[in-house]
Design a protein around this nucleic acid. Structure first.
Lengths: 334, 334
DNA sequence: CTGTTAGCGCATTCAC
DNA sequence: GTGAATGCGCTAACAG
């Protein structure tokens, strides 16, 4: 309750409770070794003084810091915040704190961050890494690492498989009579982008629809908006975008050209991060970022406890969420 | 370059370089105390072995952890990610790592986080705190704290003053003939909300426009959308929302009721986090979250170095960004 | 300039 | 069950 200036140590608690320092230590880490009565007395003394264990000292002595690091390419991309939040909540269940690292979509920066951080955490969760497999393996060699949306054999990973959802999207469009669609791609080195592109291609073939790809390097609103000009010249009637941000850009670009959605054109996003916030509400492939965040931390904790580094590959399936930006193909040209 | 299993210590480096351990320590923390040649030799040895200092040990010995904590109410609110990013970048300039804490808009949770975190950081940055002044003061008593968007006397704070921008918004609406406007409010305990509400009131009076308030507790898309029903029954022709999220909700709600913007109704947001991503593009009050994040960390670093706790109150002004959701008042009722 | 020594706060052997 | 000693890796006096 009181806000003392100097942090007090195990020592003052020991004096206050009339026991040895080792007993205080045990009262906090191995209560079962002490007589319940003693534990109680120590805890009361600690509470009275406002004692709080020193993590640095504990870490030095045990090698366990009780911290983990979470690295993401871009905090500001709406895909990640829910993941961060979920990871945090899960970490808290184990009384872990999380260091957040933002790599800015830059492998160099990612590497620097990891180097700086890996020394003070027990484990790492790396989401959508932009580093090479080799670099990742190096870090994974020194301490537990869990990957999200990156498939490196031998390293535990949580994969959000947008393939299923994307295939549903293509089927959905095909059923509505769309014969020509385009896929607006995301970052070339993104595992998710590869998955999505492949899924679009394969299922387009299956349903007999023609697919073209419009390349974009960064997944952003602006990139989507710019892509619109390339869309209209190809005789396509629908588009699947790498992510919702781009889809929203496309929506706006379309509106600016007085193309109505979904009457004249259909749009599908990915990751469903904008939810129902666009108008018309965006049809998108569901996202399971928060589950991935939770699972990654959970897995990391498991590894930390069982001390075993199993080769886990946990895939989260997705599906299509149909809203109002998709409809029947309008066959006549505008 | 190599990825050793066990972390090596200052000791092996000392042996490798043929010096005492203390020299190795100095080579890293106070190179100026050593002969340049010795420093070089030690650094080479360290590099060769792949030595990396142990932060926990250093922290234990010096009391300096080289970490700071950043607490936000909601990572997923687009207002915060840019701030987090900027804070991170600034922290990195000083070789600090940042713990991120998400309070979930909950004072209890915020308090718990702070308790857990404050032990392992040198300073705290608390953004949009939901805690009481008393609680904040308690934490500020034990270690350096910088507040963002919270005005507690005696504690260094960075305030994003949306007042100016909001006043511009009211003036802008008045000039366009709006006589009745409504302010859709945000969290009651939010400093920003109080500022904005007060600014709307005072300048509305100044320009002779009537203002009503529609209350909302959480700043979200859904809350904005729900507020629409209350808007239309009041004969107002324009709305100023607590933030862009709510403004976007209002935009969608309006569209669903076939009210066109800005022809039939004008909408102004705050924080400008959606930028030009809405359609029509949202008129909003500019946001300076990233500057606030940078400034807060910079200030914290300054406090850490000069060891002085000045009573800083740094105000960042904002202004209105006119886009396409505001226009002349449509006087006839629809 | 550099080596020697003594803790930082805690967990953890050992004895008792 | 509990107390007394040892060391985690590093920095900070203190010597030399």
């Amino acid at each position: 309750m009181t806000g003392r200036k100097e942090a007090l140590t195990i020592r003052q608690v020991a004096i206050e409770a009339g026991v040895a320092r080792s007993s205080v230590s045990r009262a906090f880490t191995r209560p079962e070794m002490l007589k319940p009565e003693t534990v109680k007395r120590i805890h009361e003394a600690a509470e009275r003084l406002g004692y709080v264990p020193n993590h640095a000292a504990r870490a030095l002595s045990t090698g366990k810091h009780g911290n983990l690091a979470l690295i993401v390419p871009d905090v500001a991309n709406p895909f990640f915040p829910p993941m961060i939040r979920a990871a945090q909540i899960e970490a808290e269940r184990f009384d872990f704190c999380v260091f957040l690292g933002n790599s800015d979509e830059n492998p160099i920066q990612e590497d620097r961050l990891l180097g700086r951080l890996s020394g003070q955490v027990e484990g790492l969760v790396i989401a959508s890494s932009r580093m090479s497999d080799g670099q990742i393996r190096t870090y994974a060699g020194s301490r537990p690492v869990v990957l999200i949306n990156r498939d490196v054999a031998g390293i535990p990973r949580i994969l959000i498989d947008s393939g299923a959802g994307v295939r549903e999207a293509v089927e959905h469009l095909a059923e509505h009579g769309h014969q020509k669609i385009v896929y607006v791609s995301g970052p070339p080195n993104s595992w998710s982008n590869k998955e999505r592109k492949a899924a679009v291609r394969s299922s387009a073939q299956k349903f007999g629809v023609e697919v073209q790809t419009v390349a974009a390097t960064v997944p952003s609103f602006a990139a989507g908006r710019n892509a619109v000009s390339h869309l209209m010249t190809r005789g396509a009637t629908a588009v699947i975008a790498f992510d919702d941000l781009m889809a929203q850009g496309i929506l706006v670009g379309l509106a600016e050209q007085h193309v109505t959605v979904p009457d004249q054109f259909s749009v599908v996003g990915c990751d469903d991060v904008l939810g129902a916030t666009t108008y018309p509400m965006l049809t998108s492939v569901s996202n399971r970022a928060s589950e991935a965040g939770r699972a990654a931390v959970g897995l990391l904790m498991e590894m930390l406890q069982s001390h075993a580094i199993r080769d886990v590959r946990y895939v989260l399936e997705t599906h299509l969420v149909v809203r109002n930006t998709t409809g029947p193909a309008r066959l006549g040209k505008s």
